[in-house]
Simulated scan of single mutants.
Amino acid sequence: MKLRILSIAFAAVLLAACGSTKSTAVASAPAAVETAPAVELTPELAEGKNLYENSCAKCHKLYEPTKFSKEEWQPILVRMQKKAKLDDVKMASITNYIHSQL
Protein backbone atom coordinates (compact mmCIF):
# COMPACT_ATOMS: atom_id res chain seq x y z
CA MET A 1 0.00 0.00 0.00
CA LYS A 2 2.82 2.40 0.87
CA LEU A 3 4.51 1.62 -2.45
CA ARG A 4 1.33 2.47 -4.32
CA ILE A 5 0.95 5.80 -2.50
CA LEU A 6 4.62 6.66 -3.11
CA SER A 7 4.27 5.77 -6.81
CA ILE A 8 1.22 8.01 -7.18
CA ALA A 9 2.94 10.85 -5.32
CA PHE A 10 6.04 10.51 -7.49
CA ALA A 11 3.95 10.55 -10.67
CA ALA A 12 2.10 13.67 -9.48
CA VAL A 13 5.36 15.48 -8.70
CA LEU A 14 6.80 14.47 -12.05
CA LEU A 15 3.77 15.73 -13.93
CA ALA A 16 3.76 18.99 -11.99
CA ALA A 17 7.45 19.55 -12.72
CA CYS A 18 7.04 18.87 -16.42
CA GLY A 19 4.02 21.15 -16.70
CA SER A 20 5.58 24.27 -15.23
CA THR A 21 6.90 27.02 -17.49
CA LYS A 22 9.27 29.86 -16.85
CA SER A 23 7.67 33.20 -17.55
CA THR A 24 10.98 35.06 -17.13
CA ALA A 25 12.47 33.31 -20.15
CA VAL A 26 9.58 34.48 -22.31
CA ALA A 27 9.83 37.99 -20.96
CA SER A 28 13.57 38.26 -21.60
CA ALA A 29 13.48 36.81 -25.12
CA PRO A 30 12.09 39.93 -26.88
CA ALA A 31 14.70 42.15 -25.22
CA ALA A 32 17.49 39.90 -26.52
CA VAL A 33 16.05 40.02 -30.03
CA GLU A 34 15.76 43.80 -29.97
CA THR A 35 19.34 44.38 -28.79
CA ALA A 36 20.95 41.73 -30.98
CA PRO A 37 23.17 43.23 -33.68
CA ALA A 38 21.86 42.84 -37.19
CA VAL A 39 24.83 41.26 -38.92
CA GLU A 40 24.30 39.81 -42.35
CA LEU A 41 25.79 36.35 -42.47
CA THR A 42 28.34 35.75 -45.18
CA PRO A 43 28.67 32.16 -46.45
CA GLU A 44 31.63 31.68 -44.09
CA LEU A 45 29.67 32.97 -41.08
CA ALA A 46 26.64 30.89 -42.08
CA GLU A 47 28.89 27.81 -42.11
CA GLY A 48 30.14 28.72 -38.64
CA LYS A 49 26.57 29.13 -37.41
CA ASN A 50 25.64 25.77 -38.90
CA LEU A 51 28.64 24.10 -37.23
CA TYR A 52 27.80 25.78 -33.92
CA GLU A 53 24.18 24.67 -34.04
CA ASN A 54 24.90 21.10 -35.17
CA SER A 55 28.07 20.36 -33.19
CA CYS A 56 27.24 22.05 -29.90
CA ALA A 57 23.55 21.17 -29.66
CA LYS A 58 24.40 17.46 -29.65
CA CYS A 59 25.40 17.69 -26.00
CA HIS A 60 23.72 20.77 -24.50
CA LYS A 61 21.44 23.71 -25.18
CA LEU A 62 22.81 26.48 -27.35
CA TYR A 63 23.69 29.79 -25.79
CA GLU A 64 23.12 33.06 -27.59
CA PRO A 65 26.50 34.43 -28.69
CA THR A 66 25.71 37.66 -26.85
CA LYS A 67 25.38 35.83 -23.53
CA PHE A 68 29.16 36.00 -23.03
CA SER A 69 31.89 38.45 -24.01
CA LYS A 70 34.80 37.55 -26.31
CA GLU A 71 36.98 37.03 -23.25
CA GLU A 72 34.41 34.72 -21.68
CA TRP A 73 33.85 32.76 -24.90
CA GLN A 74 37.53 31.98 -25.45
CA PRO A 75 38.03 29.36 -22.68
CA ILE A 76 34.57 27.92 -23.37
CA LEU A 77 35.41 27.40 -27.03
CA VAL A 78 38.80 25.87 -26.25
CA ARG A 79 37.23 23.43 -23.80
CA MET A 80 34.36 22.53 -26.13
CA GLN A 81 36.66 22.02 -29.11
CA LYS A 82 38.28 19.11 -27.32
CA LYS A 83 34.97 17.62 -26.20
CA ALA A 84 33.34 17.97 -29.64
CA LYS A 85 36.51 16.75 -31.37
CA LEU A 86 36.51 19.66 -33.82
CA ASP A 87 39.57 20.49 -35.89
CA ASP A 88 41.10 23.98 -35.89
CA VAL A 89 39.41 25.01 -39.17
CA LYS A 90 35.93 24.17 -37.92
CA MET A 91 36.64 25.81 -34.58
CA ALA A 92 37.87 28.98 -36.30
CA SER A 93 34.64 29.08 -38.28
CA ILE A 94 32.54 28.75 -35.11
CA THR A 95 34.66 31.37 -33.34
CA ASN A 96 34.29 33.81 -36.24
CA TYR A 97 30.52 33.33 -36.22
CA ILE A 98 30.25 33.94 -32.46
CA HIS A 99 32.53 36.99 -32.59
CA SER A 100 30.51 38.43 -35.48
CA GLN A 101 27.38 38.34 -33.32
CA LEU A 102 28.90 40.29 -30.42
Rank of each mutant, 00 (worst) to 15 (best):
N96Q: 13
A57F: 08
L62I: 03
K83C: 05
E71S: 06
L3V: 12
V26F: 15
A29F: 14
L14A: 10
T66H: 07
A11N: 09
A36H: 07
M1E: 14
K49G: 06
K67S: 13
P65D: 02
L77S: 00
I5A: 12
A11P: 07
S69M: 05
I94E: 00
M1K: 12
S20F: 04
T21G: 04
Q81A: 09
L86G: 05
K2V: 14
I5H: 12
A92N: 08
Q101H: 06
Q74K: 08
L15S: 14
H60S: 12
L6D: 04
A29V: 08
T66S: 15
Y52I: 05
S69W: 02
S28E: 13
L6M: 13
F68E: 01
K82R: 11
N50L: 10
V13D: 03
A12L: 14
N96L: 06
P37N: 02
K22S: 15
D88I: 10
A17W: 04
S20Q: 09
K70I: 02
S23P: 08
E53I: 12
K83Q: 10
T35N: 05
N50Q: 13
T35K: 07
K22Q: 14
A92G: 07
T95W: 03
C56T: 05
F68K: 04
Y97S: 00
I98P: 00
L62E: 01
K90M: 08
L3Q: 08
S20T: 11
E44H: 07
P65H: 00
T42M: 08
F68T: 01
L6Q: 09
L51Q: 03
A46R: 14
A12H: 12
K2E: 08
A29S: 10
V39T: 10
E53D: 07
I98S: 02
A11S: 14
C59Q: 11
K90V: 04
I76R: 08
Q101A: 09
E72T: 03
N50I: 10
A17E: 03
C56W: 01
E72R: 06
K70F: 04
L86M: 14
P65M: 01
Q81W: 02
I8S: 13
L102P: 04
V33L: 12
L77P: 01
W73N: 01
P30W: 02
N50P: 04
S100M: 04
I8W: 15
D87P: 08
K85L: 04
L15P: 07
S7H: 08
V26I: 13
L51S: 01
T24Q: 11
K82G: 12
D88F: 03
Y52M: 07
I76P: 07
S7E: 03
A32F: 09
A36Y: 02
L102H: 09
P43H: 02
L77V: 06
A27P: 03
L41W: 01
A12N: 11
A46M: 11
K22I: 13
T42V: 09
L86C: 07
Q81I: 05
S23R: 15
T24P: 01
K67N: 10
R4T: 11
N50Y: 06
